[in-house]
Structure formats: C-alpha cells, structure tokens
Design a protein around this nucleic acid. Structure first.
Length: 378
DNA sequence: AACGCGGGGCT
DNA sequence: AGCCCAGCGTT
C-alpha cells in the first residue's frame, strides 16, 4: 500500500516536472503579451481598480467573491461611502452592515467582514498584515483574497487564482486538467505563481482577470481580438470553447417553506435565521418547513400555537412565491393572518412596526412578498 | 475531498 | 434549463 502511494506521488511529481519544462516558450510569451495588452489596450474601468488601500481592496474582493462585477459595483460604492475606513466598519452595528449587504447573497461573507474588521482593530493595531500567510489566517480571506491584497496593496508576487485565471490558463496552455478538483487547483495555482511578473505583480494580476472577463470569456471567447491568440494552445487546436474542463455537477434540492405573516394592528412578527442553513442572519416570518406544500391546517400546528392561540385571528390570504438558488429551489407559501390580540412572541421573535421594516435585512423571497403589496409595504 | 452557501445575467 | 461569476469555511 505504501509503495503504491509512493508510486502515485512519484508519477504526479514527474507529471509536474514535465509540465514545467514543456511550455517554456509559451510561458515567457504569456506574461510579456499580457502586460503589453494591459498597458496599451486594457480600458476596463472599475471603482476599486488601481487602489492601494488594503482596506478598500479587501472590501472590494470580498464583495466580488463569486459575484459578477456589475452586481457588486454599487454595493462596493455604498460600503465605501458608509464605512470609508476600517475603523468605521469595525464599530458599525451588525444590523447596519447586513442591511447594506442585503440582496448580495453568501451572507457569511458579511459576517466574516465584520468579524475580521474588529479582529484587525483589536489585535493588529487597525492595520492589515503585510504578508500572504498572515492575511490567510483572517476569517473570510482565502487564497484568492490574500493574493489580491498582497499584490495590489503591498506589491508581493502572489498570483490570484479565480474563475477568470483558471479559464485563461486552461485555454492558453490547452490543459484538460479539471479546474474544480484539489489536484487541478494545485496545478493551476502553481503555474500562475510561475507566470506572475516579479516586477509588477499587481498589474499582472489585474491584467489576467481583465483579459478573462473581457476577451477570454466563458462563452463566446473573442479570440479574434485576443493579444495572446497566436501563442494560445486552445486557439491553435480550435477548442477554446471546450475549455476549461469541470467535473462536478450538483443536484438541486427542493424545499417547501410556510410562512406565517401575522399582523397585529400595524405590527408584524419577525424572526432571525440562526441555524447553519441558507440566509443566516437575515430576517423572515415564523416558518414551518415541510417535505411538501401544506394547506391552512398548518395554522393549527403546535409550533405556531403561541402566535395563533384560539379564535382571535382570521386568515386573510394565502399566496405562493418561488426562489431559485444555486443548489436549492424554495417554494414559499405565505399565510397572512390578522389578530386582534398582541401575539405572544417567543424569545427569538420580535414584533416590528411596518415603518421599521427597512431596518432589517430579508431574503429575496420575503422582499418579493412584501413588495407585491401582500405585505402592505415596500 | 466534498459540500453548502445567493442572486443575477447570459445563452 | 443550465452555466458561470474577482471564493471561503466546514466537515
């Protein structure tokens, strides 16, 4: 067994050595052509581009994790306006930050943002550490973000590896190694760190991502305009659109949410999602989840006994909404109820006036519901 | 190594 | 309907 593992390791090593030597000319050309294009023809403009302040770089990169530039743009500008410095962010109330993040998704990013801001202020003198390894230890900062801060703010030669980079490298070098495995990540990352310009790491990192976003696009790459096409293996073999290779496919889970929208005069009951699940930290109505859609009989469910005791309430409407997430499809049914007695809220629930609803952050499906007039708001 | 985590735009 | 996006943390 040990022998076998040793042999696999040796073979992997040989493969890497082979790759390293194989494309020497191609590699040299890559960095040179990329930087030339960046200097002369890259006209992409974004509010965070060229910034050296590690705080704003961190903010931008965090917002942009798995998020399209166009989508994150306005969020970044609102955050910079509300929290111009790290110190401003560190003292902000969590509710305020979540409200600004509302609608952006992946809410753990938001939680980690605040956590790390406070960590930096209380344990690092309000300064970002100036090394890649130190940056990596901070919550919410992984290999990509650490490399971005290290290179853009501190001129350190650490290559960013994001979706753009993986695509550009896979195509340029014609690698069919899948990009979504540990093995693949290791190989592409090591290649990227070989290629990065030692003189201007920040410019190199910016350039490769801009090229991936504007020319070497996921679908319909603009090889005709690409400055690297003449050295690009995928272009040479006419398989740019077939790369990069991915192996993983995920199944989509279906979930059925039943929300109790209980109005008492102009107030409504809300609760905050706390479990390890989607939308943690956002607010919603009292919820019953089931394996299938349920009817009005749910109003007599034990979990809602405190809010709907006997006959002091009336059902006003039932309405359905859907929300498609990347890995889940949410079917939500809203039961709107009016009550004449103040509901007995549990410890985790709050009674909020409708004019105060804008103070809370909600999942998209709740926003949908409130906006449609069913909730008398937005 | 595999999985969970959003929301939106594009084909 | 499926894919992808300036990824990261947990198990």
């Amino acid at each position: 067994m040990k022998k076998l593992i040793a042999r696999v390791k040796q073979r992997r090593k040989n493969w890497e050595v082979c790759l390293r030597n194989m494309d020497l000319k191609r590699k040299k050309a890559f960095t040179k052509l990329l930087l030339e294009w960046h200097r002369n023809e890259n006209h992409r403009v974004m509010p965070w581009k060229g910034i050296r302040d590690p705080y704003r770089i961190w903010l931008a990169e965090t917002i942009l994790q798995q998020t399209r530039v166009e989508q994150g743009w306005a969020y970044y500008e609102r955050f910079v306006q509300a929290f111009p410095t790290l110190a401003d962010l560190a003292v902000a109330p969590e509710e305020h930050i979540f409200r600004l993040w509302q609608g952006l998704g992946y809410y753990n990013r938001c939680r980690n943002l605040l956590h790390t801001a406070r960590e930096l202020v209380s344990h690092h003198g309000g300064l970002f550490p100036r090394s890649y390894e130190q940056l990596l230890t901070l919550k919410g900062i992984g290999p990509y973000t650490a490399a971005a801060i290290a290179s853009f703010a501190f001129d350190l030669p650490h290559a960013v590896v994001d979706g753009n980079v993986l695509r550009v490298l896979s195509r340029y070098f014609g690698w069919e190694q899948p990009i979504d495995t540990s093995e693949g990540k290791r190989l592409y990352s090591s290649l990227a760190n070989e290629l990065i310009s030692r003189e201007s790491p920040g410019a190199y990192n910016q350039a490769i991502m801009d090229l991936g976003a504007t020319i070497c696009r996921p679908r319909v790459p603009l090889c005709g305009q690409c400055p690297l096409a003449r050295c690009c293996k995928a272009f040479e073999q006419g398989k740019a659109e077939q790369l990069p290779v991915k192996v993983s496919r995920r199944t989509i889970r279906q979930r059925y949410f039943h929300y109790l929208v209980i109005w008492y005069e102009d107030r409504i009951v809300l609760q905050r999602r706390e479990n390890k699940d989607i939308w943690r930290g956002l607010y919603e109505f009292p919820l019953l989840e089931a394996d299938a859609p349920g009817g009005a009989e749910l109003l007599h469910h034990a979990a809602w006994k405190n809010l709907l005791p006997d006959e002091d309430w009336i059902l006003k409407s039932i309405s359905d909404r859907q929300q498609q997430l990347t890995h889940q499809r949410i079917y939500a049914r809203f039961f709107a109820v009016e009550t004449s007695r103040p509901p007995a809220v549990l410890a985790h629930q709050i009674l909020v006036h409708r004019h105060q609803l804008t103070l809370y952050a909600f999942p998209g499906i709740i926003i949908q519901y409130l906006r449609d007039g069913q909730g008398r708001l937005f």
